[in-house]
Design a protein around this nucleic acid. Sequence first.
RNA 1: GCGGCUAUAGUUCAGAGGCAGAACGCCGGUCUGUGGCACCGGAUGUCGUGGGUUCGACCCCCACUAGCCGCCCCA
Length: 441
Amino acid sequence: MSQIKAVRGTRDLLPPETELWNHIEATARRVFARYAFGEIRTPIFEDTQLFARGVGEETDIVSKEMYTWEDRARAQSEKAQMLTLRPENTAGVVRAYIEHKLGDTGLLQKLYYIGPQFRRERPQKGRYRQFFQIGAEVIGPTSAGSESPLRDAEILEMLGTLLGELGITGWMLELNSVGSAADRPRYVQALREALVDVAATLCADCQRRAVTNPLRVLDCKVPEDQGKINELPKIADFLDEDSRAHFAMVCAALDACDVPYTINPRLVRGLDYYTRTTFEFTHGGLGAQNALLGGGRYDGLSEAIGGPKAPGIGFAMGADRLVLTLQAQAAEGGANNAAILVDVYIAPLGGAQQAQSLVLARELRRAGLRVELGDGTFRLKKSFEMGNKLARKIVLFGEEEAASGIVTIKDFETGEQTKVPRGELADFLSTKHSRFPVARE
RNA sequence: GCGGCUAUAGUUCAGAGGCAGAACGCCGGUCUGUGGCACCGGAUGUCGUGGGUUCGACCCCCACUAGCCGCCCCA
């Protein structure tokens, strides 16, 4: 019988890597809290129509990457419902915003989420069929200031701070404005017209894109094409007065708080709902999947899925890619990737000490220490070898210690050995250990 | 969805038609009150899966699966 394995594009996350995942998620939660975001958890599957109308029928995500199935009807009279594993989370958040009438509070909604998303793409480094996103959305009625460029700048400033606290260095922020819902079609039309003359001289991919999805031509990476692509009409020239002023204000606010960015007039994104500000944080060393996170403003999304006017802006970061980046940085710094170290290893020397050693372990654990317990071997050497693999310190608990009530403790790193009365052990050991030093705070 | 490369021990990898290997790790011993070191010994395994060619296949051929790199797309 053949072995059952994790399906293509999915994987198991194991310790100690999961510790890094938890650290990333905890850091994100901490930063989000400081910016007044609350957590939202939406279902992992939704009505297929949500994504078709929200993300856009023509996008690659919807047209060929979704896990969609027909849920069976409960009664003959009922139609079977088409369901889809969420390929992204913004549509779900906006659906929840509409469904729970969050706009009626009159307040700006600042919501973050952490969870798995699903897209049926060919797996690659940093690209999985089940992948994890950490994202946030700022959405609300116009009266709550949801349309303000300050929201955009605040989000971008927060992301710079978050990446900093995660210890990710060397990121680049690329910024663009794709204009209002009215600006974009005008631009696409102009682009299409301009491409009629040039397309034939471009690479094969571009010739295809010129017809199917002209915006994608701007993404071309073929060196020979770059000159000609730079000659094409620029979206910036098609922005209306409001969009132009909006974008200028975003940039001014970023300048004021020293968030570095480059304006990339060729930054286009694959989801139809984006309007005005769009952005991407990229990182070298991620290979072809170089985007750490991406996002933008979506002023018309709520209406597109049947809700009230509710401008918003949000982003999603690829947690898998944050992990990859941090692992790569750790490898550069020559960090070890050993097993998780507990604070202390208790070595009961001999079977007679076993019961009391569990009592001692319980005392220390209740004091908040991470404790691993040996198996009662007489062999001191064995105890030390095992302890050295698992813990920072070892506590010897043999006949002597049981009789005197004074245990022997040795620090593996310094080699320092001390005798401590059993009752004072927890205090003695209570020094802070952090495997992930945080840059600030 | 397309193209290329890869798949052998827990891990990293050698092995190019004739007994399945190394290093690290693991287990045991020297060693029942002091680890990291040393020395001695041991076990690693359906050679990704399924077919085929051959007296004989880890090796050659075909298919499949998975991973990596690139394209595409995106986080």
